[in-house]
Computed example of a mutant assay.
Amino acid sequence: MSIGIIGAGAIGQLLFAQLNTGTSNAHKIHLISRSPQSFIQPMSFTGLDNNTQHGSVEILGQDAAEIAQLDLLIVCVKAYQVVETITPVIDRLKPNCQIMLLHNGMGPHRNVAELLQHYPDMGLSLATTSQGALKNAPWNVSHTGNGKTLIGHYCGQPLAEHFKSFLLEQIPNATWHANITTALWQKLVINCAINPLTAFYQCKNGQLAEACYQTEILTIIEECITVAKLDGIDLTNVDMVTMVDEVIHFTANNTSSMLQDINHQRPTEIAYISGYVVARAQYHGIQTPANLTCLQRIQALEH
């Protein structure tokens, strides 16, 4: 098997390390950069046991011949980078190559599904993870927390059983999800309720447990559930409020990725979080004012 991971951020390098652990020569794992040319790069990875592994890895460039031999391409870039990342390489992939998306938010899966209509032997899988990873330096990543990884089929040809087994064995706490869209909507609701509020109010996740934020959080959740139902996904208010409360509690000291992006003057994924809910609401002819407010607030901060 030949697996490529495109997107060398914290999660991309974490997956690269996990998929390489204990693998045989039959499983070739490649890390792919946006550079045209391949290069040798010293890398360091620190596991949860605080043991650090050092090594040199060949990072494939966009022009590398190995890309044409990939059986599975895992895309670990930001949501707003997914389509622009896949489009230049899709014609060079094997006709039956599988693509897997792993990013925050929702939306790009619809665009990629449209692309794959021209490639009937390919398949699209989606994944979400709550594993923690910290990028200490460009090629120095630490595994900072256990978390669940959910993987499931979305459209096109299904992922072969040997790939499914390999991923579930190599990625800690990984599970195959029969209805991955439901899992992604649950993650989306959590992100909608936490990320834009922490970014706007400039607070850590735990501060959202205070009473002054509860009305806003509950309204965001209710709007998300309404839109999800119109999209054919049944979520319950009790379950989603519980999930959001648990994440706020267990990640109380965390600085959300959206707040980090704002503080570092980077683009956020708000268009694929609150923005996705707003867009789907508009598609169904309803209004979601709380999520629209979140979208507009963060867009204003970005500018």
Rank of each mutant, 00 (worst) to 15 (best):
S125L: 13
I99W: 08
A113C: 06
G61Q: 10
H249T: 15
T23W: 00
T181G: 06
T85E: 04
T129W: 02
A137K: 12
I233M: 08
H284R: 09
A174E: 08
H143P: 05
L292D: 09
I298W: 00
T293C: 07
N50A: 15
L168W: 07
Q98L: 05
I11F: 04
N173Y: 13
Q296I: 05
N25R: 11
C203F: 03
G55T: 06
Q265N: 09
L134G: 01
H177D: 11
A26Q: 15
L197N: 01
T23R: 13
P95R: 12
S44E: 13
E66K: 09
T215Q: 15
F250C: 14
Y283A: 15
H54W: 11
N96G: 08
V82A: 09
Q117S: 12
P36E: 11
Q69V: 01
N96P: 08
E302H: 06
E269D: 07
L292Y: 01
I273C: 04
M106Q: 02
Q170R: 15
M122G: 09
I99H: 14
A211R: 12
C97N: 14
G7R: 07
I86T: 03
S125K: 04
V141A: 10
C192L: 03
T87P: 00
M240S: 02
Q214R: 08
L159P: 04
R110C: 12
L168S: 07
P289C: 02
A113P: 02
W139L: 15
C97R: 14
Q62F: 06
T46Q: 09
H249C: 14
C203H: 01
D71R: 02
M1T: 03
T21K: 15
L230Y: 13
G132M: 00
K94W: 07
S56D: 15
V189T: 09
A68R: 12
I190F: 00
K204V: 09
Q170C: 11
N136C: 06
A8T: 12
E58D: 06
